[in-house]
Design a protein around this nucleic acid. Sequence first.
DNA 1: CATATTAAGTCAGCTTTGTTGACATTCCAA
DNA 2: TTGGAATGTCAACAAAGCTGACTTAATATG
Lengths: 165, 165
Amino acid sequence: MAELHSGENLLFLTDEQLRQGIEAMFFAYRGFTADPDRILATLAYGRAHHRAIHFIARSPGTTVNNLLAILGVTKQSLNRVLRTLIEDGLVESRVGTTDKRERHLTLTEAGAALERKLSDAQRARMRAAYRAAGPQAVAGFRQVLEAMMEPDLRRRYHAIRESDT
Amino acid sequence: MAELHSGENLLFLTDEQLRQGIEAMFFAYRGFTADPDRILATLAYGRAHHRAIHFIARSPGTTVNNLLAILGVTKQSLNRVLRTLIEDGLVESRVGTTDKRERHLTLTEAGAALERKLSDAQRARMRAAYRAAGPQAVAGFRQVLEAMMEPDLRRRYHAIRESDT
DNA sequence: CATATTAAGTCAGCTTTGTTGACATTCCAA
DNA sequence: TTGGAATGTCAACAAAGCTGACTTAATATG
């Protein structure tokens, strides 16, 4: 097989290597969500709540529409999650000032506290993985993940970064 | 913040860097599953079917119990998926020879054909991402993903590789 | 040999999270 | 003023996970 390729720069693209990458992605994602999942289970919340909380924390005052585009679900699905978070006093929904059709979402103090708890757990695992792999590996990790995104989500991924202080 | 750390080897572990890694993981996983999802939707199958098909293809003759451990779901949940795949003639279940309690699972020709179709799509995206990022990035990508796995799944991840010819 | 354990399958019921489709409200803009 | 956009809500449904209880068959163990 290998002798069919011209240079060593192509060796890592064998089907077997790609399959291993696919499986690594699958198993790693399980680890990635494991810690927040455990916390959420004790609170009768799910991954959908976590995602909403995460991106509201990341872009305070974001609109429902923007959140929909980031999360890639229907408004009905997001609304159900959002409603429970608002009812439980974790998220605040304020009518927009310039455009009153829009609702701007922010975390309450309680919401921010839960966000911190979930984020701490997830970052701890990320930190451990980054430490174990080293800075160069981390750079590569980020490069490959970015290349794997759908173009419109890659744009949103960068947009979140830029809107940050 | 940064001045609290002693060396540049710690600079990439800021909360902001970790948050970006978390978001990259989230967006990339969406891309990772997008292509197979589109194919599965046309066939009235879901991601759960894909996972079962993938690991049966990877370890032909695997037992139900082994699959359960890899997928991390209950047998009731797996059974529902497996039953439809067997009914549809994509998976074959044979009683074990040494231990007749066990069922050994393999893909039929039709099952292998679907596996190829799904796998081709997923590998094409993986290949494009690998190409775009380069060999060194791929090595780092794999290292970080491995470090992120739960220990028991990391062992299984390696076991699949070793059982391969 | 008798009993316990294991592998697999099944039934019932429940939850989360996604989906469509239909419809109302509010508000901006042409 | 009328059309379209943003939001929200109701209803119904589906995929895919869960628990718990139970059966059957085969193997392991005392």
